[in-house]
């Protein structure tokens, strides 16, 4: 688990959990959050099993903070994002946490399946830095400033 504190503005920083097996992607997200000046803490887990353990405070994630937002990759080892999504959305306590599926797949089935499993939105990763920065800024603007999220 890596946690990076970014700018803390007025309130406590937003807790973001990123389930992603590619460390380069996590690092990129970290950089983009910093560039977009999102007051947040980014935590990352490398596979689906650890994502569930984190959300349920199991094992080494005993004192993990409940995330305000989850960025979920679809293709991960051990347990993939689809399965994590189904599991979380079937859990009466965890399902309130907004989950944004972030993947490189633009396949129609993946998109439909994700929404069928109650993903809160589906975003395609971009190889273009400018586009990625825009995505992060949009996520921040909507989820952290426009939308009201439950306290817990």
């Amino acid at each position: 688990m890596t946690a990076v504190a970014s700018y803390s503005a007025a309130g406590p920083p937003m807790q973001i959990l990123m389930a992603e097996d590619n460390p380069a992607d996590v690092r990129l997200m970290q950089l983009m959050l910093r560039e977009a000046e999102v007051p947040s803490e980014l935590h990352s887990v490398p596979d689906g099993e650890e994502a569930l353990a984190y959300l349920r405070h199991q094992g080494k994630y005993g004192d993990a903070k409940r995330p305000n937002l989850v960025l979920l990759d679809l293709n991960m080892p051990k347990r993939d994002g689809r399965s994590v999504l189904r599991e979380v959305k079937a859990d009466p306590d965890l399902r309130r946490i907004p989950i944004i599926v972030m993947t490189s797949s633009g396949a129609e089935e993946d998109i439909r399946q994700a929404y069928d499993a109650h993903a809160n939105s589906y975003v395609r990763k971009s190889g273009d830095l400018g586009a990625l920065k825009e995505i992060v800024a949009t996520i921040e603007r909507f989820w952290f400033r426009t939308a009201e999220l439950p306290r817990a």
């Binding site: 590619n22 380069a24 992607d25 990129l28 950089l31 293709n75 490189s104 797949s105 633009g106 396949a107 990763k125 971009s126 190889g127 273009d128 830095l129 990625l132």
Partner: peptide, 23 residues
């Protein structure tokens, strides 16, 4: 499927980080 998922991933890393270095 391989072309869409598995090839795109590393390619995205190459282009993102070269852009980052260039910047």
């Amino acid at each position: 499927y391989v072309a869409s998922h598995d090839l795109q991933e590393p390619l995205r890393m190459v282009s993102s980080y070269t852009q980052l270095v260039a910047q």
